[in-house]
Amino acid sequence: MNPTAFICATCGTQQAPAAAPPATCAICEDPRQWVPAAGQPWTTMEALARRHAIGWREVAPGLLGCGMFPDFAIAQRALLVRTPAGNVLWDCVALLDPATVAIIKALGGISAIAISHPHYYATMVDWARAFDCPVLLHGADRKWVMRPDPAIRFWEGERHAVLPGVTLHRLGGHFAGGTILHWDVGRGGILTGDIASVTPDRQHVSFMWSFPNWVPLPAAEVTRMGAVLEALDFDAVYGAWWDRVIPTGGKAAMRRSVARYVAAVTGPGPLGD
């Protein structure tokens, strides 16, 4: 049997090619994620292509979203940041089909892929090979790479310039290497995945160590994260899902959110009636 790069159907992470699926998914076994009661399910790129497709939407001028329909695994969508110096793919999805390759190549290809944290690594190696580009990951999360490849480049420290106007910042929190992308265009924007997760009201963000298992972060860590965000100039916040966008007023929303979070976890009591 030819080796297959199996994909976890719970988190969407692709594994190194093997003759059979792994016994477990290390990403899902970690207490930030979860394993279904029926056991760990696996799929392949070919199987996904039979049941899913990639859909596209313009999220903002110069910013295109692409995601899987119907939803798969965590159901995040990726963002293609378009700049005069090249395109950057922010975060990743598990499916990569010929139509998507053709669309992106027609738009100028991808200069680099940057990913917020391990839950969105998905099939990043297939994407990197299709567009002959590097994948930029923070070195603090290197142990979570399930499919090593020469295309993966680890960066260290607190800041990494990708292209003019596109910079990565380590925010931490959800993962030690949790990353956001600062996009210096217009009044500025940040792409946050769920490192600073836009809430359903689209007026706040929130922070968690584990979202599915409802484990919060310490107040001191969120205060530190807030200081990193305060140093950036931005108006818009683009979260991990289609409807999780704060199109304007994002800096004020971030300040309110950090203050609310710290008040909630430090007490002395409920925030309201």
Rank of each mutant, 00 (worst) to 15 (best):
T10A: 12
Q15L: 09
Q15D: 07
I27Y: 00
D30F: 00
Q33C: 08
V35Y: 01
A37P: 01
W42I: 03
T44A: 04
T44W: 05
A47Y: 03
H52N: 10
H52I: 03
A53Y: 03
V59M: 11
V59T: 13
A60P: 01
L63C: 04
L63K: 00
G65A: 15
C66V: 09
G67M: 04
M68E: 14
D71Q: 13
A75V: 07
R82M: 15
T83L: 12
T83C: 12
P84F: 13
L89A: 11
V93K: 01
L95P: 02
L95N: 03
L96S: 01
D97N: 10
I103E: 13
I103C: 07
I103K: 11
I104M: 07
A106R: 14
L107T: 09
I110W: 03
S116P: 04
S116D: 07
P118K: 02
P118W: 01
T123H: 03
M124V: 12
A130Q: 05
G139L: 05
A140V: 04
A140M: 11
D141G: 07
K143E: 15
P148T: 03
R153Y: 07
F154C: 01
F154D: 03
W155I: 05
E156G: 06
E158M: 12
E158W: 02
R159F: 01
R159G: 06
A161R: 14
A161E: 14
P164G: 12
P164N: 12
T167N: 02
H169R: 13
L171W: 07
L171K: 05
G172I: 09
G173S: 08
H174E: 07
H174P: 00
A176T: 07
G177V: 01
G178A: 05
L181Q: 02
V185W: 11
T192F: 03
T192P: 02
D194V: 06
A196Y: 03
P200T: 08
P200R: 04
Q203K: 15
Q203C: 14
Q203R: 14
F207Q: 03
F207W: 11
F211R: 10
P212Y: 10
N213C: 12
A219E: 09
A220K: 15
V222C: 08
T223C: 09
A227C: 09
L229F: 11
L232Y: 10
D233Y: 03
F234M: 11
D235S: 14
A236L: 04
V237Q: 06
Y238N: 01
R244V: 00
I246G: 02
P247N: 13
G249P: 05
G249M: 11
A252F: 03
V258K: 02
V258F: 04
R260V: 06
R260L: 13
Y261M: 06
A264N: 09
P270L: 08
D273H: 09
